[in-house]
């Protein structure tokens, strides 16, 4: 059951990105371009998502098990550190260059745009570099 719910959740997420316009990199860049002809649509994507998710996520935060009996795995960490801030700034620069973040990158992978394949390969390399450096750090 948890496998089916995972697949359905991913599918709904992907359809949501498509409907919202988040899977169109040009629209994302138009949202990030405050000084140009600004398209505020994507602020509503985040607003709409948070409005729906706020009650379920806060309910889940207080539970030990999910409705299907899986262990609740919600991050507990609260400290701010340089990795969080530096990593997020680096991510934001990359997002601003191409208008693509990880969710839309996966959604667009099978839509036959060569640019997405280039982007996703580079993104996976970036993630791989992180995991290699991270494993050395903890050794």
């Amino acid at each position: 059951m948890t496998k089916l719910s995972a697949l359905i959740a991913g599918l709904i997420f992907g359809l949501g990105l498509l409907l919202a316009g988040m899977a169109n990199p040009a629209k994302v860049l138009a949202f990030l371009d405050l000084a140009g002809a600004w398209d505020p649509s994507l602020a509503l994507v985040m607003g709409g998502a948070i409005a729906v998710a706020v009650i379920p996520l806060n309910w889940a935060r207080k539970k030990k098990l999910s409705l299907l009996g899986a262990r609740m795995q919600i991050p507990k960490k609260r400290e701010l550190d340089i990795r969080l801030i530096g990593g997020s700034l680096v991510f934001g620069v990359g997002w601003g260059v191409a208008g693509i973040c990880p969710g839309p990158a996966v959604v667009l992978l099978l839509t036959a745009h060569w640019q997405i394949i280039v982007f996703v390969l580079a993104m996976l390399v970036g993630m791989y570099v992180f995991s290699v450096l991270e494993s050395r750090r903890t050794c």
Partner: peptide, 17 residues
């Protein structure tokens, strides 16, 4: 679209934790 994304993350946390 945002509401669908909210629904998806809610389903994933409620069902899969």
């Amino acid at each position: 679209g945002g509401a669908l994304i909210g629904l998806a993350v809610s389903l994933f946390v409620l069902a899969n934790g």
